[in-house]
Amino acid sequence: MGIPYKIFLCFCLCLATLPYAAKAEDSSVDNASNDLRQSREKAVQVVTACDGRKKVIVEGCQEGEAMPEQKARKVAELLMTLMEFCEDEIIAKLPKTGMFIQLSVNGMPYVTVGDTEEIPLILVHGGKAHTEREKKIWAAEMNRMITEGYALFHSPGLGKNGISCDMCHPDASNTHPETYPKYQTQMNKAVLLRDMINWCIENPMEGDKLAEDDQKMKAVEAYIISARAGKKLEPGKH
């Protein structure tokens, strides 16, 4: 999504705000709607997305006044994020200064978010941010799975001839999980990463292959995928 597109979107959004004043009169009387009603009294400008369900109240900017370009971009980005994510009615307040945005989903009380990237997290949780406890659990459990995979990957236990995965794949190099499904000439068919893991277990490592739903298989996959995340992909070379 290039900058010209964003500028175009800004322009559309500005057009969309014109009939706003009339609509605002009909709004219901919850907190967020009160904000909208007061919009003309305060120095705010309200920008509505083309679906009519997402609105941004831009503080420190008069109705009809041309926003500074940076601000306009911010508004456009915010509206796009909101529109991409859900169908709900959302009102966002963009403060005059500072980075905190306030969001009200379907008339619920406002929640504060630091950045547009946090918005999806807020929205899935019905307006509540994840707690530190939740985040710690998730990280620990994910790491447990990866660590289990790391241990399997680095020990000869998956095979029977003393060979382990890391002997050919230090740091999971040459595994390229992002390239599957693909045709593997060793099996002469299109396969998934887990098929190749099993092939390696049976062939170079001379062991017994794992069931596809074996926790060990999942763990090995978890390690490989996490170790290779963000690595450069060069089609034709893998």
Binding site: I163, M167, C168, H169, S173, N174, Q186, C200, N203, P204
Partner: peptide
Amino acid sequence: WPWPYAPEGIPRLTVQMDRADPFNQ
């Protein structure tokens, strides 16, 4: 067995060998 080439630092004089087929020891 062959090690893969490292992700960086390969000396420029090196003519790299192709990846080996794991079927073939």
